[in-house]
C-alpha cells in the first residue's frame, strides 16, 4: 500500500526518471558543497580536510601556489579522483561520490581542462555537435539527425563564444585562445549548471584575456551557470572576481573579496612574502 502510495505521489522524483539536464536541487542551499574532503597520494595529502561552498549562479575564483591542490579538487568534483574521506554534494539531492565520471558530466557539471583539447580533425560546428546534450548511446548516435532546435542551440553558443565565422573550419587551425573558447562552448552545449574552468587564460594575449573575462562574467548568474575559475594570473582574477578562495596545502587558507584576501597576512606569507600581484607576474 505504501509503495502504491509513493508511486502515485507525483512530486516524488525517481532516480531513473530524473532527466539528464538540470536535475540539481538548489532550493535549500548551495549548488556545490564539499565537506572535510581529504585525499592523499602515497601518504602525501594533496587535499586536506577541504571545505568549500559555491552558491547558485556564483562566479568564484580559486587561487593558490603550485601544488596547492586546485586541479586535484576539480578531479574530485568530476569523479576522476576518489577522496579518502569527506562528502561532495551537488545541490541537495546528488551525492557526487556515489557517481562515476559520465554520470557526473550528464548531471550538469562541465569541466575545462588546463590544456585545451578540442577535436582538431572535426570542424568547430562538429565539435559543438558532439558536445550537445543528447542521447549518447550507440544507436541513437548512429541515427541522429540535426534538428532545427539543435542547430539553433549551436548557433547560439557559436555567437556566445564569438566563433560564428569559423564554424566550418577544422578546430585544428584555431589559435590557442579560440580553442579555449571553443572548449567553453562545448561545455555550454551540455547546458551545465556548474562550470569548472582550470587556468583559462594561460598563454593568451591581452586582448583574448579581456574577451575571456567578458565571456566568463556573462555566463555566471542565477538561473544560468555557476562558474568556478582556477587561475594564476592575478590581474585576470581581479578583473572578474567577486569572491576569491585561496587554497594552500590542500585546504582553504582564506576566502573573501580580492582586497580582503590580498591583505591577509597568511596569504601574503604563502606567496613567499610577496604581493600576489607580483608573484603572478
Amino acid at each position: 500500500m505504501n509503495l502504491l502510495h509513493s508511486l502515485a505521489d507525483r512530486d516524488r522524483v525517481f532516480d531513473f526518471l530524473v532527466p539528464a539536464t538540470s536535475p540539481v536541487d538548489v532550493r535549500h542551499g548551495p549548488i556545490l558543497y564539499l565537506e572535510d574532503v581529504t585525499v592523499s597520494f602515497d601518504g602525501f595529502k594533496a587535499i586536506d580536510e577541504l571545505n568549500l561552498t559555491i552558491d547558485d549562479g556564483e562566479l568564484r575564483c580559486i587561487i593558490g601556489p603550485n601544488g596547492a591542490g586546485k586541479t586535484t579538487m576539480m578531479d574530485i568534483i568530476t569523479g576522476k579522483t576518489r577522496p579518502d574521506r569527506g562528502s561532495v554534494w551537488f545541490g541537495s539531492r546528488h551525492d557526487l561520490l556515489a557517481m562515476n565520471e559520465p554520470q557526473i558530466a550528464s548531471l550538469g557539471i562541465g569541466r575545462k581542462f588546463q590544456k585545451p583539447t578540442v577535436f582538431e580533425a572535426l570542424t568547430v560546428f562538429e565539435n559543438l555537435e558532439l558536445a550537445m546534450a543528447a542521447d549518447k548511446r550507440i544507436l541513437p548516435t548512429l541515427t541522429a539527425r540535426l534538428t532545427g532546435e539543435f542547430r539553433d542551440r549551436i548557433d547560439e553558443v557559436l555567437a556566445t563564444i564569438g566563433l560564428s565565422e569559423l564554424r566550418q573550419r577544422p578546430a585544428g587551425i584555431l589559435s590557442h585562445g579560440q580553442k579555449q573558447w571553443l572548449e567553453i562552448g562545448m561545455l555550454l552545449m551540455q547546458r551545465p549548471r556548474l562550470l569548472l574552468v582550470d587556468e583559462p587564460v594561460a598563454g593568451m594575449t591581452e586582448q583574448e584575456m579581456e574577451r575571456t573575462a567578458e565571456l566568463l562574467t556573462g555566463l555566471a548568474g542565477k538561473g544560468k551557470q555557476s562558474v568556478v575559475v582556477v587561475e594564476h594570473d592575478m590581474g585576470f582574477v581581479r578583473s572578474i572576481a567577486r569572491t576569491v578562495t585561496v587554497l594552500h596545502q590542500g585546504s582553504v587558507l582564506a576566502e573573501g573579496s580580492m582586497d580582503q584576501v590580498s591583505g591577509d597576512p597568511r596569504v601574503v606569507e604563502v606567496y613567499l612574502g610577496v604581493d600576489p600581484d607580483e608573484e603572478a607576474a
Partner: peptide
C-alpha cells in the same frame, strides 16, 4: 558520415576527452 562516425574520429584523436563528453567510448 553519421554522428557516430564523428564520435569515432573524436575517440581516435582524444579518447579521454570523448569519454568526458559522456560517450561510452569502449562501446563505440
Amino acid at each position: 558520415a553519421s554522428k557516430l562516425g564523428r564520435v569515432c574520429v573524436a575517440t581516435r584523436d582524444a579518447e579521454a576527452r570523448t569519454r568526458f563528453l559522456g560517450y561510452r567510448v569502449e562501446r563505440f
